[in-house]
């Protein structure tokens, strides 16, 4: 039974989601602080944006530094629509995905012929323009004072922190499955081809411009969805949240977790956004030192890039392999041990 779950990727995603969904039980039992729930849920939100960016960065080999801007756009759109109508969850969500995606396509069209570092600069500019817009268009965004909304109603049910948490788990697992399907089909192979060899991709019939545009639009849609979910869960949005720092953190999450890895993306998001709150700030003495969490995260990123460039997802393969070697060394005279393993 367990083996069958392990073999089937969809069962694995469902199992992963079920595990995550257990967390509120621990908080309600008083074993874990409620703030942990908030941190973990925000990690799910960032993971969704990072999954989209991984399509772009990991699979298609394109760099975008504009993810935060599109996330913010999704957040403000969803927030604006839901501010006075808590029941408008789905409408808000849909609008918050569609509008940024259309803008993303437009940006994509303009920057279609550029790739690599130039695309990074172009997306950075778009993100900064959006950020400035969030600050200036006060009637819609609340400007620097920010925007505040209530938890939404979904199908007539008033959401709270715990139910929102479960909803986010659902969205995360859904996006992981969709991403898995996408990257393992014709579309994913086309992205691989584009990154691996542009001439081979073209010779095999991959229209580079078309696929660059599609993958850019997809990454934007993921970011916008994440932004909308953010505002529904956190219930507020400030321009400062959607700065370049967030875009860079998303790139860091992918590099740490592992390019082209779906679970790795989530693990990377845990390291970037969870390490300080969930681990370092729980340690005695160290938690009282200002800024130590940032420094620790920074050092970890550098260490991983230098010594573990494949990303943390490789631990999944490397640890069992190391254990096997270790055991073989400890008991070298029993060769049948190898077979058992």
């Amino acid at each position: 039974m367990l083996k069958r779950i392990y073999k089937n990727p969809y069962a694995r995603f469902a199992f992963f989601g079920a595990l995550l969904a257990l967390l509120p039980l621990f908080t309600s039992a008083g074993l874990i602080k409620v703030s942990v729930l908030t941190t973990v849920a925000s990690i799910f939100i960032y993971s969704i944006a990072a999954l989209g960016l991984n399509l772009l960065l990991g699979y298609a080999g394109q760099i975008s530094l504009g993810t935060a801007g599109f996330m913010g756009l999704g957040a403000y759109l969803a927030g604006y629509l839901a501010k006075d109508m808590p029941a408008a969850f789905w409408i808000g969500l849909l609008a918050a995905i569609i509008v940024p995606t259309l803008i993303g396509i437009l940006v994509g069209f303009i920057s279609l012929r550029i790739a690599g570092i130039y695309l990074a600069i172009a997306t950075l500019c778009v993100s900064e323009i959006l950020l400035k817009t969030f600050e200036e268009v006060e009637p819609f965004t609340g400007g620097m004072r920010g925007m505040n909304i209530k938890y939404p109603q979904i199908f007539g049910i008033q959401m709270d922190r715990t139910t929102m948490y479960w909803l986010l788990v659902g969205f995360l697992v859904l996006m992981m499955i969709l991403t898995y399907n996408l990257v393992n089909g014709q579309f994913g192979r086309a992205l691989h081809a584009m990154r691996g060899s542009e001439s081979a991709a073209q010779a095999m019939g991959v229209n580079l411009l078309k696929y660059r545009l599609i993958v850019f639009a997809l990454a934007t849609a993921y970011a916008a969805l994440a932004g909308a979910l953010y505002v529904f869960f956190i219930r507020s949005s400030y321009p400062t949240t959607w700065s370049l720092m967030l875009s860079l953190n998303l790139v860091a999450a992918i590099v740490i977790g592992g390019m082209r890895s779906i679970y790795g993306t989530v693990v990377g998001a845990f390291v970037v956004w969870g390490l300080s709150d969930l681990v370092i700030k729980q340690l005695p003495v160290i938690r009282d030192l200002n800024g130590v969490a940032f420094i620790a995260t920074g050092i970890l990123i550098v260490v991983i890039i230098m010594f573990y460039p494949g990303g943390l997802r490789n631990i999944w393969y490397d640890v069992p392999r190391a254990l096997r070697k270790l055991r073989a060394k400890v008991r070298p005279k029993t060769p049948q041990l190898e077979d058992e393993l």
Binding site: R189, A190, H192, G196, S197, S199, A200, A201, M204, V206
Partner: peptide
């Protein structure tokens, strides 16, 4: 269809997936 002088395959993909790229269209 063409092949390349310095084989252009995608290192990260399995041989089967590499072949499947040829069926893209």
């Amino acid at each position: 269809v063409r092949t390349f002088q310095n084989v252009e395959v995608i290192r990260e993909l399995s041989l089967l997936d590499n072949v499947l790229i040829g069926a893209h269209g």
